[in-house]
Nucleic acid binder design. Structure first.
Lengths: 146, 146
DNA sequence: TGTGATTAACTGTTCGAACAGGTAATTGCT
DNA sequence: AGCAATTACCTGTTCGAACAGTTAATCACA
């Protein structure tokens, strides 16, 4: 029994989830994290890098390079914004649609794995617990960041 | 409400926890992940790199470089194993003890933040939930890895 | 005892994550 | 209109994470 049970449990769960997601994405040709960008683009359509950063709670520098790699890999295309010369609009390429279904299936599988044999009520409890933890951590993060 | 509620919740909780841990470690001079190595060495004493890799569920290549950086930073010292010429024994330096208390306090703080105002019963429930998720994910990870 | 498999550590490479800065475009306010 | 602050994006750098492949030492067993 570790000294910080919750903290350690979160670390372990997150690492396992990460590992599984990575395995699943491997066949698709996406690196861990890139799937979040693609799903965002598939679902909400073309948008600015800054919009992606904000929605995914990411970093400007990380997004610049991630977009460049996705572009080199043919998953994404970028064009200058017509209204703001500083901004770049990113969109999923038609070719990327070929892997969309598989990415979405991977995430559905991941959820299914996590759920396991939990009953509907237990799933709901689990979600409550995670939301509670998130709220607690978020409050602390906000107070030290701000 | 996201399509994969548990998956997304885990991702968010883990990211917040990570951010907070990083903030806390910053003042100590340790990078995220290095604190796990140090705590292992502080608690269980000198040990082989391979032992660290196994206990922390890490990677041989990652550990090689992490140890080298910790050594350059003065937190760790390495010496050849007397019984196995392939192996290196790593130990925490006396100097590293200066930050031990602060690292341990940080982890205690992190736990306290996660716990928030949860009652003892709720904490126990939360732990059960996380253990359940871990077991589910672990089973899947093992079956695909093996 | 010698030989083939395993093990411990290392290098090379690519990636996301984070921080520090830097430039050009835009906005806000006087 | 003009200037300061903000914003969007970028580069440089350091880190852990993961994968592939190398070398040297050790082990297992025929």
């Amino acid at each position: 029994m570790p000294a910080q049970p919750l903290t350690n449990a979160i670390v372990r769960v997150a690492r396992l989830q990460r590992m599984l997601a990575q395995q699943m994405l491997r066949g698709v040709g996406l690196h861990l994290g890139q799937e979040l960008v693609m799903m965002q683009l598939w679902e909400r359509g073309p948008q600015t890098q800054t919009e992606l950063v904000r929605t995914l709670d990411s970093d400007s520098a990380t997004m610049t390079r991630m977009v460049r790699r996705l572009e080199n890999a043919g998953f994404v295309r970028s064009r200058p914004s017509p209204t703001d010369k500083r901004a770049t609009i990113i969109e999923a390429t038609p070719a990327s649609q070929a892997v969309r279904r598989e990415v979405e299936r991977s995430w559905a599988d991941l959820e299914k794995i996590a759920v396991g044999d939990l009953t509907a009520a237990q799933q709901s409890d689990a979600l409550d617990v995670l939301r509670r933890l998130e709220a607690n951590l978020d409050a602390a993060a906000r107070s030290t960041t701000a």
